[in-house]
Design a protein around this nucleic acid. Structure first.
Lengths: 310, 310
DNA sequence: CCAATGTGATAGGCTGTGCCTATCTACTAT
DNA sequence: ATAGTAGATAGGCACAGCCTATCACATTGG
């Protein structure tokens, strides 16, 4: 891009002169003195090498070149003003769009719940959701392809700041026929020992958490790895197996009659759902407010209901 | 038009940063120091109230707002550059367009003759001809609706400068049957006395000149006033009458077999065809060159030929 | 592991731009 | 004539925008 030798102000003055039909009136409109306007205009004409106005003692005429160039000048000024107007839209961070990532073990259960609240609270904010596994979201965030992401804090996220949305306890989900389906409330995690547990496919952070948990108590993994929590539930129900689920998913995944849900304890395993962002983001304040709204809209009810009914 | 608080340069810097992906590289491209660019950018962001870039120690990311606003900024800069390019076209006065008026008693005879020469000499110059009577041209010139005009200097033109193109002698044009058709070369104007002369309608400067001439020697005007030299010739030929014509018109109007052309003398009446312009025009030099070209392309041949054969 | 090299931000100082007021010159209108 | 208008010009001042030098913090290489 080559340097532009003239300024927007000069164009403004020129257009003003053409519209006002005189230097003095134009200067008044532009809130400058007539000599100041005169000087800028002379400079503009000097720079572009074309005489825009024909000065006569009693009036100002627009030259042929001036007619055409001033039309262009108006277009430039209009574009510039548009840009400014556009900027004013973005000035309010809740007016515009924000690109947010979210992991697959949260997205289907959380988005439906919080979207109405967000829509109501920030009607002018367009949220562009991207559903990917944590590692993908992490690099997208890093590269600036996302402004924030909803993930589980228990996974490595690199250098980010965060605002917690909720703690999401894990529960036992077993087929009705499974021995552990009859366990009392708050079944200790240790009881999972020796059980064969169904898990998600690689890359899901929820899988990593459960794997950690299971390896500690000595469970083994079933042969098949599900691609989503939905298929995981189907799998468990149809094979009479066992798995862990995040409570968040229960609102939807607990509809299977073959499935029994039992809370876990000693210690209660959980993940921390949070909104994360780059430390250098210009939207920190906005994102914290956003997270606050998400926290308020988080589906406590379903979690509590399920815990009680389990 | 409201004042625009930001400058084109700031937009340039911003676009450069987005394209170069860093302040230093951008600064280099813009031929300024990095702090200078930094300052301008900070100022721009402050003015429009939106953070365009996310500064990280190791790289620069474009914010969501930045993506959209920078696209706009590029458009503004492109428009501005276009304007400059357009100006460069007009910088050469012979590159662009020029609005020139011309009177009806010259236009049809002169334009065909000089247009090829002008086209060849100034290929990039588009001449916009306006054919009107002198008074109309005069006010159009005054108002700036025309850049120049081709007229006869013998008419009152107000405050204008001029460059002569040619002296255009008047000749006698009589029907073959008319007594004066047999006159020798250089018929004295005085011989027109008592004759009934056909003239153009009001408003033509050529009519005014001939009227002046005739009233001095005591001719009288025929009942019908022609709207053009063409009809005037038809009129004279068909009614066996008499009129005066500018030599310039002979190239075309002398084709009528019924018409006899005789030169006039003592003194030889003529009009001075010239290019005129406002004293304040920015095109004086160009117009003088233009007039020179017209002078060179002026159809001498036809005039001489007619004079000889008369 | 430390030096070398890179980033953008900051500080201090200078130059030139852009503004002001006051004045000038020329034309118009009373 | 005289007053009122136009744009151009002159002198002076304030600050915008640039420079160099430096800082604070990264990443990279030996």
């Amino acid at each position: 891009m080559k340097a532009l030798p003239y300024t927007l102000r000069q164009l403004e003055y020129a257009v003003a002169v053409a519209e006002a039909g005189g230097f003095r009136k134009a200067a008044e409109q532009c809130h400058v003195s007539q000599p100041a306007l005169s000087a800028q205009l002379a400079q503009l004409e000097d720079i572009i090498g074309v005489r825009l106005f024909e000065r006569d003692r009693r009036r100002v005429l627009v030259t042929g070149a001036g007619r055409e160039l001033l039309a262009r000048a108006k277009r430039v000024l209009t574009e510039a003003a548009d840009l400014q107007a556009l900027a004013r839209c973005w000035e309010d961070p809740f007016h515009g769009e924000m690109r947010i990532g979210i992991i697959p073990t949260i997205a289907p259960y959380l988005l439906a719940e919080i979207t109405p609240a967000l829509k109501e609270r920030f009607p002018e904010l367009r949220l562009l959701w991207t559903e990917e596994k944590t590692s993908t979201l992490s690099s997208m965030l890093e590269e600036g392809a996302l402004d924030a992401a909803v993930v589980a804090l228990e996974t490595d996220l690199g250098d980010v700041e965060h605002a917690e949305i909720a703690k999401d306890p894990f529960v036992l989900a077993a087929a009705r026929s499974h021995p552990l389906a009859k366990a009392r409330s708050k079944m200790p995690v240790a009881k999972l020992a020796q059980s064969c547990v169904y898990l998600l496919e690689d890359g899901h952070c929820f899988r990593e958490q459960v794997v950690d948990l299971c390896s500690k108590v000595g469970s083994e993994e079933a042969g098949f790895r599900a691609t989503s929590l939905g298929t995981l539930v189907q799998l468990v129900a149809s094979t009479g197996g066992l798995t862990l689920l995040p409570s968040l998913a229960l609102g939807i995944e607990n509809r299977n009659e073959q499935l029994k849900i039992r809370p876990l304890g000693s210690p209660m395993p959980y993940r921390t759902i949070a909104l994360v962002w780059r430390p250098s983001t210009p939207f920190r304040d906005a994102l914290e407010t956003l997270a606050k709204t998400m926290r308020a809209a988080y589906p406590v009810s379903s979690k509590v209901t399920n815990a009680k009914q389990g």
